[in-house]
């Protein structure tokens, strides 16, 4: 009886130590759930979700403080992916936060730009290049299309331009087939 007890205690101690050790040794930095949610979010950093960026929104979702349907750039596919990840029910996008738009990039009208640097300070991904009192321009490949630079511009010289479809980024469409009414002479005998 006593030996059995001792064995069990020793085993419990040993396993406990192992667990404690591995908890320290294999400690995961950061919150993996936040990162996994953040990986699904489109990183437009537009703030339409009501948070100052994608990471804060991801953190809020992980804490259960925000719903999964607040990110318009992520679209329906994004909500589906979040629902899958979190094991919750899918719900349609919340229109309060805006509607999905075709992907665009900002373009500065370089003749109108007065070089005030206000848009530089607004851009969440440093996609605007310029210096005080010099013309600014946008690095199109870095622009996420968040529209945050539009409002601060005092001369309204920034506009959003949808990314055009080219043979390079063109996608094959989902196969659809025109439904043609069947020839009436075939249908008649069936209905009759």
């Amino acid at each position: 009886m006593l030996t059995a007890l001792l064995v069990m205690v020793a085993l419990a101690l040993f396993l406990g130590l192992m667990l404690g050790y591995s908890a320290l040794k294999f400690k995961v930095e950061g919150d993996p759930l936040v990162d996994r949610i953040d990986a699904i979010l489109p990183q437009t950093q537009c703030g339409q979700c009501g948070f100052p960026g994608c990471k804060p929104y991801a953190t809020a979702i992980a804490k259960g403080e925000a719903d999964i349907n607040q990110c318009p750039p992520g679209g329906d596919a994004g909500v589906h992916a979040l629902a899958d990840l979190l094991g919750v029910e899918y719900k349609p996008l919340n229109a309060e936060h805006g509607l999905p738009k075709p992907k665009s990039v900002a373009v500065i009208d370089e003749n109108t730009c007065i070089g005030c640097t206000l848009c530089i300070q607004a851009c969440p991904v440093d996609a605007i290049l310029g210096a005080a009192k010099h013309m600014h321009t946008i690095i199109a490949s870095e622009c996420t299309g968040c529209e945050l630079c539009l409002a601060p511009c005092p001369v309204d010289c920034i506009s959003m331009q949808p990314i055009a479809e080219t043979p390079d980024n063109w996608k094959w469409r989902y196969p659809v087939f025109a439904i043609k009414p069947e020839a009436p002479q075939i249908q008649k005998p069936q209905t009759a």
């Binding site: 990183q43 994608c54 969440p124 991904v125 870095e142």
Partner: peptide, 9 residues
Amino acid sequence: AADVARERN
């Protein structure tokens, strides 16, 4: 593109 944007942000 999202990864680049995340890094830059």
